[in-house]
Amino acid sequence: MIEFIFDLFKPAEFPIISRILFAVLTFAFIGGFVIVAVWLERKVAAHMQDRLGPMRVGFHGILQTIADTVKLIIKEDIIPSAADKVLFITAPFLVFMGAFLSFLAIPVSEEFTPSDLNGGLFYILAVSSIVIPGLVMAGWGSNNKWSLFGAMRSAAQMVSYEIPIVLSLLVVVMAASSLNLSEIVGAQKVGLGGFSGIAGWFFIRNPFLFVAFWVYIIAGTAENNRTPFDLPEAESELVAGFHTEYSGMRFAFFFLAEYAAMLVMALVVAICFMGGWLPIIGTESAIPGFVWLLGKAMSIVLLQMWFRWTFPRLRVDQLMTISWKVLLPITFVLVLGQGVWSIWIG
């Protein structure tokens, strides 16, 4: 029986069932991650503000998010009468699809990658651009001024920050001379002077990669519309931005998409700059690769939560200045510098 269940996961024997199973498992994993991440975010926020946060449901409130999820599921599903119903209903799924499809190319460990695409990094960047029309669809379909303003702000912001993201990842691609995510991790096995472990990770390999790491973290935070770049859903100005009119399960899908996008960004950082499944010391370890990958990704998620409760929100003009006048010139220099470094130093 157990062997039969394992056989179901082999694409060679059950081509359709195995792929559906992978998709369902990925969805379940995202759901589990979001439940933990929302609880973690509330706890991090509370402790940074010298509060306790959720404490009542379960040990230190660990079951709080599950209770909230149940509440969201059984809530009434309201569609405003003036809304464009087709667009209003489609939008949450389109937004979630952008984040969900990215997981296809993530190399989980040395032995297992759902789909070992040659252009894996490019695929993740391309697929995440589906999110932008999805957000605009939500804003337009809601037929609400706040929603529309939020959607337009988010579209402008995400289009602008896509450029520093692509260019900072280009530095990694030049260092690894591959777009394949498994090969990018493989290139981080041995660093300068033949040291393995953390010395091989890209973010400390040379000064250009180190700066590219921080540029990507800043631009990635902005791409996910997280504080200090959360202008599209700035509560004090726009109520809740593009998802003002959403409730119940449809709102939950926006929530899922936001946290899934955050996890994808953290996984890309872990793979491209922090050695993916490689351990901190040496190249072999008793801890399996996916634990290393998830641990590194979770540290980036925590960093983003730390940002959220530390920095105040930017103004629109400051947001655009950071993207076009600060990050963009820096990434140009980085691409040039990494090219020179690759040729002469190695």
Binding site: A126, I132, P133, W140, V159
Partner: peptide, 20 residues
């Protein structure tokens, strides 16, 4: 695969946004 990704990037990430 490459053309497919360029299609996503240029037409969905670029042209659609421009039209919107």
């Amino acid at each position: 695969d490459f053309i497919a990704m360029v299609q996503l990037m240029v037409y969905i990430g670029g042209i659609t946004i421009l039209l919107l």
